[in-house]
Design a protein around this nucleic acid. Sequence first.
DNA 1: CTTCATTTGTTCGTATGTATC
DNA 2: CGATACATACGAACAAATGAA
Lengths: 241, 241
Amino acid sequence: MSEPTDSTNSPLRMRRSTTAEQIKHLIMQRGLRPGDTIPTEAELCNDLGVSRSSVREAIRTLATLDIVEVRHGHGTVVGNMSLTPLVETLVFRGALTPGDDLEALREVIELRRVLDLAFTDAVVDAHKGKANPIIERLVTNMVERSNNNEPFLSDDRLFHSEMLSPVGNPLAVQLVAAFWDIHTAVLPKLDLALPDDMRQTAQAHSDLYWSAQRGDHEGYRHAVIAHYDPLVRMLQKQAKS
Amino acid sequence: MSEPTDSTNSPLRMRRSTTAEQIKHLIMQRGLRPGDTIPTEAELCNDLGVSRSSVREAIRTLATLDIVEVRHGHGTVVGNMSLTPLVETLVFRGALTPGDDLEALREVIELRRVLDLAFTDAVVDAHKGKANPIIERLVTNMVERSNNNEPFLSDDRLFHSEMLSPVGNPLAVQLVAAFWDIHTAVLPKLDLALPDDMRQTAQAHSDLYWSAQRGDHEGYRHAVIAHYDPLVRMLQKQAKS
DNA sequence: CTTCATTTGTTCGTATGTATC
DNA sequence: CGATACATACGAACAAATGAA
């Protein structure tokens, strides 16, 4: 039985935690908020008693998780802890599987649809009777663009965030935005975007807003179905081939 | 004056992409699957023409996203691209906000509840009329433990995964499991876990399964509500103070 | 069980690019 | 413009873990 290295030979090594965890601990201890600067690499080397490389790898880890944000030549600040790591992981997972990527896309789209349906009541109640100039402008813009066969990606993303925003769950807003990002990142690998489908999608956005605006839960649900219908049909067609 | 280390053996320097992206590209090119070994650090240094530090930071980035998995003294393999990065980010975000952490917990719990409700039809249809010995054992075990005031965390997590598993959306299963992890990681900061609540939660699990098993959609929805009811009440109580 | 090669983990020193003042 | 502070990159050396001979 080999003794597990009693570590008494390393005086300051009672830390089993990694450098990244120590930096996280430091952020919590000092009560730093997103945007606040964290100590420089050199300071962290002294404070934590580790080398520059270790500090850099730890910061790299935290930057990947969007827990910190590195600004070249300026310094490192606390990040806003977005869902970027989720997006990156799932986008790569979708891009990795060569023949099976539409299965990954199907799962993402189903989740988006299910989430939209799940928030139906909250969204409709939040928008009922309240005009929203921002969303109205987005909707008219999307419809117009679809008629000219122009894309409307950025409007699309903003629309869904704005619709979900007033329900009072920022995490949910971020999550659907993240799935939107994954969706649009994985999708271009497949050929689609037919003009008719684009027009149907734009119209569905319009129906979503106006259904919610007049408190029509059932109409909203139908609009959700119609919104994802072109994608579902496309996936079924691809699956047959 | 100082010559820029004329490493003539690496003439391809036109790459603007990061080292991490090059490694991702390499994984895709070779069609590597989770578990397959990727080249060693030394080999990557030669192949990509960068230093070992850069390779290590890139690998660290990919390991953070669970795109690769590093095994000390053995090598590095392709990871399974789980949702661990999402969990880590959100757990830290919840732990960071000192007085506002129950707001973060509320958002997570609302999302869990919404997701469970959103998959009601699929889950009920998938389990209707089909006995599931694994889940039945989990349920009886949880009820028994709750009567003895013993925790049943691992059973709880497995239960939700097993319930959602047959709907055929692995991504959804991973997502609810991830939110379960976030939930249980953020929760211990608050004092709770009353015996009555534990019994109600265990009973709700039982109701969830048996409702689905007999095809009772409405009963399933009520069980979902009851499942999160203790937490919702606790959050409201905490919010008042 | 021991030895040894392989591979990742850690550290140090140095040089370079970049943003701010 | 220069000076400073900072992140980025490189290379060499040694430590620790793993697995096979």
